[in-house]
Design a protein around this nucleic acid. Structure first.
Lengths: 156, 156
DNA sequence: GCAGAGGTACTCGGATACGCGCTGTCCGAGTAAATTGGG
DNA sequence: CCCAATTTACTCGGACAGCGCGTATCCGAGTACCTCTGC
């Protein structure tokens, strides 16, 4: 799995704390010590997925497109990694020698793989960004305040 | 996900039908119209994982190392793709500016990702090779007999 | 003092190189079977 | 005819290239703010 998922997920936590103040990608990257331009590219994927909105120009940046309790971890993963299944059935049994090319029921292995991925997606879809924000605040109570101050006073 | 998972899974179904007769990788590859040498490489991974046993020389090949009801889809996936999690937490929050490097609780995002992967693994671990064999026989009742005949009479 | 036009600085966004891992292939070590020669 | 040593042919197993995708970077289009000038 790509690094972009972790980067953008944590970035979304910060954006949740910033409410409606747009935060540029450079600030987020500086906060987490990440390559700025690449993080920007990943955030664009979230914009295309409708999770974030972007505003250009001075005082511009990214912000959440909807409340944090309406953004799931699956939304973020799907935006970065794509929505299609990791396992792709090529129906090699249809290529099998001595078999009819016609099959009544679909490949049972593909079904099992798909079911497993559905379980994975459901588990991710149950986790909302709001729950991560609460967990972070429980770990460090003044995290939101600290983050806001740092982003306001940071130079680069 | 790599192609090897699909290839080796279907190969295991055939090996289950062949009981204790060793089948060379070339025969399996010819049956499914797959590159022979590469399939051999993938099957070696299953041997290292203890799912198959290999015998060299004439009349050699691969066979199942244990009954088909004791081989799960997760065993095969783990053998090919590796057992470690797809998502690797790099703890970028520890790199976050203005934060204590010490954290009491682990990263909540990493926990959610790990839980989702556990759900995926459990779903795969519940599917045994024996169930796939039964499904294939239900789809094509004489599939086992046909496969045995073809493998016996095939030239390459 | 105020309004408006121009300049400026800052942002996102997509187009452009680089590196690693999966894909694919090849040849050698090892082994069991087949063969051949002798008893 | 039976046995054993040798040859043979076939297998796995790991070492060797090729390619695609994720990683990383850069520069251009666009916009809001700031400044400066004229009224």
């Amino acid at each position: 799995m790509g690094e972009g998922v972790e980067w953008t997920a944590h970035s979304c936590i910060l954006l949740a704390w910033m409410e409606d103040d747009a935060v540029p990608a450079a600030k987020l990257a500086s906060y987490y010590k990440l390559p700025s331009a690449y993080l920007n590219k990943q955030l664009q994927s979230l914009v295309r997925a409708g999770i974030l909105t972007s505003v250009p120009g001075p005082k511009g940046g990214f912000r959440l497109a909807r409340p944090s309790d309406q953004i799931t971890l699956w939304d973020i993963v799907a935006a970065i990694e794509g929505e299609k299944d990791a396992f792709h059935c090529t129906e090699i049994r249809a290529q099998a020698a001595g078999s009819r090319t016609q099959f009544s029921s679909p490949c049972s292995i593909a079904i099992a793989m798909h079911e497993a991925e559905l379980a994975w997606r459901r588990a991710l879809a149950q986790q909302t960004l709001a729950s991560f924000v609460r967990a972070a605040e429980r770990s460090v109570p003044d995290a939101a305040e600290r983050a806001r101050r740092w982003l306001d006073t940071a130079e680069t």
